[in-house]
């Protein structure tokens, strides 16, 4: 096993590094190990529907990055208070095996006197509370296993960017998350900081070996290109979303309005509008303007601006209408 020191906290770069090692670099060693972390980020499972998983407004306002993984599973929130680990192993596993990769992580935690266990849902728990999620993919003849470790993560932010904007739901959510999820740092007998934790975990997992591959300038150039072209792109993060239906309802002075939208690969593919709104405009003009539009506020605003909504809707402006739709 060989270690790659990766101090980037950019999730796009970090996922691009894994991808580069699997699809282009293909180091001669059987296994590569990386231990890394990110700025506040929402990581979406490969086949999840990004728009349905996250509170996009909150994420945008707070500069939280959104990135789709190449592995399965659900959405997680990561920040500088947590760590991610990746094992990239040559060869495709005959059968799916999580223990092989999680075993060394549990060992490392036991050395710190943390009573970590593996449960039946492929999660790592301490006293029944989850602190790690794990996922895999088999790609290009390689098995990638990566997982998260909550060390000192901000659970309040985690809940806020994963739930709808409602004060009551958020406060309930925070309570419920604190009952189910835990930070490793809460279980340490001798407190250590986030960086010391990393050092001790890497030493334990590498079993004292100092075998290390240092990324070259040429490597970095390719990784940055993959980060930019693939992992930071709208097409990858939103465009790949499976087809879904959404219903949005809004009330305004002029009446009530409901939008039924089909969204396919991030774009509105069908739109029907219902309501008791007041106006002289043929409502079809609006639905036709929306079909083909990317399902985000900016694009929707642009599409609506092209339609003279004053004729159709009494006392409602473009911003308000866009807020209802998206």
């Amino acid at each position: 096993m060989i270690y790659i020191e990766n101090n980037s906290t950019d999730p796009f770069f970090n996922f691009a590094l894994e991808y580069y090692l699997i699809t282009e670099k293909q180091l001669p060693e059987d296994q590569v190990f990386i231990f890394w972390r990110t700025e506040p980020t929402l990581m979406i499972g490969k086949y999840q529907n990004t728009i349905e998983e996250i509170n996009e407004d909150f994420a945008k306002q707070n500069g939280i990055k959104v990135v789709r993984r190449i592995t399965g599973g659900g959405t997680i929130y990561t920040d500088m208070g947590g760590w991610q680990f990746s094992f990239i192993t040559k060869g495709l596993a005959e059968t799916i095996d999580f223990n092989k990769y999680i075993g060394p992580v549990i060992e490392g935690l036991k050395k710190l006197d943390v009573p970590a266990e593996f449960n039946s849902r492929n999660d790592l728990v301490i006293h029944g509370k989850k602190f790690s999620g794990n996922a895999q993919c088999m790609l290009n003849g390689y098995t990638l296993h990566h997982g998260s470790l909550l060390f000192n993560t901000d659970f309040e932010q985690m809940v806020k960017c994963l739930t709808v904007d409602d004060y009551k739901i958020i406060s309930k959510g925070i309570k419920s998350v604190k009952e189910r999820v835990t930070n490793i740092s809460e279980h340490l007998k001798n407190p250590i900081d986030t960086n010391t934790f990393r050092k001790l975990m890497v030493e334990s997992i590498m079993q004292g070996s100092r075998a290390e591959y240092k990324l070259t300038a040429a490597d970095l150039e390719r990784i940055n290109a993959i980060a930019r072209e693939k992992f930071a792109s709208w097409e990858w993060n939103y465009g790949k979303s499976p087809k879904f239906n959404i219903t949005r309802t809004g009330r305004f002075d002029g009446g009530k309005m409901e939008f039924k939208l089909d969204v396919n690969n991030g774009k509105i593919s069908d739109c029907t509008i219902y309501g008791d709104f007041f106006g002289t405009m043929d409502i079809k003009v609006l639905s036709e303007a929306l079909i083909g539009t990317t399902y985000n506020k900016e694009s929707i605003k642009k599409a609506i601006t092209a339609v003279d909504i004053k004729q159709g809707f009494y006392q409602i402006n473009v911003d308000e209408l866009a807020d209802i739709i998206c």
Binding site: K46, L92, Q136, N140
Partner: peptide
Amino acid sequence: AAWNKEAGEVVKKGEVLFEIETEKVVSE
């Protein structure tokens, strides 16, 4: 999870046909 080939297409042995997702694992 996704088809990499369409009906009617020529496929070669070893080419990725589709991807499947089971509990947290995506496999080609």
